[in-house]
């Protein structure tokens, strides 16, 4: 069974009098311990889909139909109180620019610890050890310094790693990564992507990675879902889709990535 199973998801935005479908009858599945890439151009509804899984759409957006099964439970129908038990603990999300995703006024370590404080019963000392271990797990060499730093003091790559450490702090099963490498240079990108693979293997993590870069997916993803204007135009095993793209849009994307 898939960890995440999205069926016929339609998300609409209110626009003046009318409504506009941002995500249109999207269906795809994310099998356990797979890395699935959700690919598409700007404005194709990738982030919206990702946030819908966390049920954290911005107020203007509504899920009008469809189901999102997480371990067989429908997230769409879940009451707010129950959702809280999922967020952070079962599924987490990392963002494109951790500079903004971290609170600028607190130290990075403090913010990772906060997640632990909220979701686990660890004592203060244990939490600090765990922060250290988490930072090591995302291959940060001097966890002490990083933990004591404010977000703006870290380089983009370190910040993204720290963000990832925060995301996996409470042992979630699913991590949604929204363009985690778009703001990084190519070499750092490659290393972060290997890190995702490593974490998937070490922690039995399932990753839904959102990107507009098909080339990047090549080395990483098991499955690819191509989204265009809120619709799934193509999906399948990564190798297959990349070798023999059937849809014009995918071909264009591939063309652009060359």
């Amino acid at each position: 069974m898939s960890l995440l199973d999205i069926q016929d998801l339609t998300i609409e935005a209110k626009q003046g009098q009318g409504r506009q479908a941002i995500v249109d009858r999207v269906s795809f599945a994310v099998p356990e311990q797979n890395i699935v890439a959700l690919v598409g151009g700007s404005g194709s509804g990738k982030t919206t889909t990702g946030l819908a899984v966390m049920r954290l759409l911005s107020p203007g957006l509504n899920i009008v139909s469809g189901r999102i099964y997480f371990e067989g439970n429908d997230v769409v129908a879940m009451p707010e109180g129950e959702l809280r038990r999922y967020r952070g603990k079962q599924m987490a999300m990392v963002f494109q620019e951790p500079l903004y995703a971290f609170n600028p006024v607190f130290r990075v370590g403090c913010q990772i610890e906060e997640v632990l404080q909220f979701h686990t019963d660890l004592t203060k000392g244990q939490r600090q050890q765990r922060v250290d271990a988490l930072l090591r797990q995302v291959e940060i060499k001097d966890p002490g310094r990083v933990a004591r730093s404010y977000p703006y003091q870290l380089s983009g790559g370190l910040r993204q790693r720290a963000m990832l450490a925060q995301a996996i702090a409470a042992n979630p099963k699913l991590v949604i990564a929204d363009e985690p490498t778009s703001n990084l240079d190519v070499t750092v990108q490659a290393r972060i992507l290997t890190l995702f693979k490593k974490l998937r293997d070490d922690l039995k993590l399932t990753v839904l990675i959102i990107t507009h870069d098909l080339g990047l997916v090549r080395s990483l993803a098991d499955q690819v879902v191509v989204l265009s204007s809120g619709r799934v135009v193509e999906e399948g095993p990564a190798g297959e889709v990349l070798q023999h793209p059937r849809h014009v849009y995918t071909q264009q994307l591939l063309e652009a990535a060359k």
């Binding site: 967020r87 999300m93 903004y100 995703a101 971290f102 600028p104 906060e114 909220f118």
Partner: peptide, 17 residues
């Protein structure tokens, strides 16, 4: 509206917190 608030929600923190 700033992203770290969304990030905090994603991490499952309570509204009060």
């Amino acid at each position: 509206e700033r992203e770290f608030v969304l990030a905090a929600k994603v991490m499952g923190l309570s509204d009060f917190r």
